[in-house]
Design a protein around this nucleic acid. Structure first.
Lengths: 179, 179
DNA sequence: TTTTATAGCGAACATCTTGTTCTGTAATCA
DNA sequence: TGATTACAGAACAAGATGTTCGCTATAAAA
């Protein structure tokens, strides 16, 4: 990738997350973004088809970081790199914490929905092999419940309660839900 | 309220929910809505300032129905009308089921976020008096967890798994979460 | 029923946003 | 150095927004 492209992309990403802390996603125009990023109109559209695509690109960027390493392993008893399932979730929380600056703006507003949907897709893969069968509760329900409440926990944590440590958060989570 | 106003409002509501099953909220224009509802442009803006306000109005409408009666009582041991806490949640699920037609479109898409936020605000009030203190888990966390996972449960139920009965859903819920 | 008030219609409008196209310039990579 | 490609800037049409106007039709009050 050309250095100019990398710079432009970074400038747009940065401008976008900065703007999201001041204005709502829907009221944000492409004009606002290119003004803040100080790039030409043509340049923006050379990189992203629409504002929505830009949002998706940023989310992909974040999750590529958060779910890097061998974190996606589905083996229930794979203690090789990240230890237990709980350790793996804690590890994810650490990665989210690092990206908190970018995430906070995205999370507060309508576009939080997009972020959460992406996030849950990744979580589904991670949780899938981890659930024990419970009598009379459909596996599908359990999976949705575990993923949904973990995602909501993260949202709660990152917007307003980030004084808790990743370890504390996963402690709370595992005490509140039947996994 | 004038009968003409009621009719117009209903026509717009109906058109809006119908359109949301076909197109995404963000790609939906005021023009689309007034075409589908067959009302004049002026009329739309006489009723709603923006598309967002329309969405909020519909949500208010729905929740006014869902949380009607004495359902909002905060008394933990108020068995007067709806029985136990669990019965009260089941009752809410019944009301949601009745409005399912309108809700489904709203829930699938970006505007699901708006619906869920509203929904959770109501749920907070209902759950607030119901939680027992758990050692080492902040009450704030517990509340967010219980509300978040119930809301996610409802979303899961209404879009794609509505073959389960309200009783079954609250059964699943109470078996999965520590309330 | 008649009167009065007001909701709705349709057209026109200025304004803003979008997404595209063009030409010239400057940075990058080989 | 030379070929390539990203970017800037301006201009553009198409479409959406939100408001204004005068006129009609409907509803509520007398």
């Amino acid at each position: 990738m050309d250095r100019r492209q990398r710079k432009t992309r970074a400038a747009i990403f940065s401008a976008f997350t900065r703007l999201l802390e001041k204005k709502s996603y829907s009221s944000l125009t492409v004009q606002d973004i290119i003004d803040e990023a100080d790039v030409g109109r043509t340049t923006f559209y050379a990189h992203f088809e629409t504002k929505d695509e830009l949002l998706k690109a940023i989310c992909s960027d974040i999750f590529e970081h958060v779910f890097s390493d061998g974190i996606m392993s589905e083996d229930k008893h794979d203690f090789s790199e990240h230890g237990s399932f709980r350790d793996r979730l804690t590890h994810i929380l650490y990665h989210l914490q690092e990206k908190q600056q970018s995430i906070r703006g995205i999370l507060s507003g309508e576009c939080g929905e997009v972020f959460m949907r992406y996030f849950k897709e990744y979580l589904y893969k991670i949780f899938d092999g981890q659930l024990d069968d419970k009598n009379n509760i459909p596996r599908e329900y359990l999976l949705n419940h575990a993923v949904g409440s973990f995602a909501e926990t993260v949202r709660w944590w990152l917007k307003g309660h980030s004084d808790y440590t990743p370890e504390q958060i996963s402690e709370f989570y595992f005490q509140s839900v039947i996994v």
